[in-house]
């Protein structure tokens, strides 16, 4: 079977499993709301300054809330030894990984699609002014941190204390991706066009995505099959 079909099958399986229970996306979205609430105490939500750091706030909320989905990605296969079955199945590790990453990415984009309007209302930000450039940044940024999150979910699947150490590992490695996404989003929300500084950050995001997608695809076999 063609590799891309296997990728789609795995992604479809994961999406269906998640959409039946909706446990991860519900808690992820609610957690994002809690973070937005807490930020309103840390900063004056109506001040002009908040608008300047809004990209940062939004991505911190995405990254923290997204971790709930990403961390579970491989751990979910642990009961009933599903992971062993998946690894034993005639699916290359890279396709399995890509399928899972794809499913996580779509789920995260779904959560973010709900977060944007809420964020716009709570913080009085007109995020629709530059919809398409913003969408591009969100799509690329989310792919970057989905990739790291999914990879580290696979890396730590058999480790005791995984919940304790995963945040330390994941957030440090995704630093450049989050930095670029935050900067680009802040600039776009401030009404600047996707040129100059914002375009440089966008190129950073693309670079990060390309480098880490290839690294993950090369290394995932070692991680899963040993």
């Amino acid at each position: 079977m063609a590799a891309w079909r296997l990728v789609l099958i795995v992604a479809h399986k994961d999406l269906r499993a998640e959409l039946r229970t909706k446990e991860a996306i519900n808690s992820s979205f609610s957690f994002a709301l809690v973070i937005l609430l807490l930020f309103s105490f840390a900063f004056d939500p109506t001040a002009e300054v908040t608008r300047e750091i809004s990209g940062g706030l939004l991505w911190i909320a995405f990254a923290f809330a997204g971790a709930l989905i990403l961390n579970r990605s491989f751990a979910r296969e642990q009961p009933n030894d599903c992971l062993d079955a998946l690894i034993a199945a005639p699916v290359p590790s890279a396709a399995l990984f890509l399928g899972k990453a794809l499913a996580n990415w779509l789920l995260l984009l779904g959560v973010e699609a709900f977060c944007f309007p809420v964020f716009g209302i709570f913080y009085n930000i007109r995020w629709t002014r530059q919809f398409w450039p913003l969408l591009l940044v969100v799509v690329l940024g989310t792919w970057g941190f989905t990739l790291i999150g999914t990879m580290f979910s696979a890396l730590t699947v058999n480790i005791r204390l995984r919940e304790v150490m995963l945040p330390l590992l994941v957030y440090t490695v995704m630093t450049p991706c989050l930095l670029a996404a935050m900067q680009a989003t802040s600039l776009l929300l401030a009404g600047e066009p996707l040129a100059g500084e914002a375009a440089v950050w966008l190129r950073f995001l693309i670079g990060f995505d390309v480098i880490f997608t290839s690294l993950s695809l090369i290394l995932v076999e070692t991680v899963l099959a040993g």
């Binding site: 990879m151 490695v173 290394l219």
Partner: peptide, 12 residues
């Protein structure tokens, strides 16, 4: 694997 990820990260 973690070390390779981390060291790819540093120049970026």
């Amino acid at each position: 694997v973690y070390a390779i990820f981390a060291s790819a990260d540093v120049p970026i």
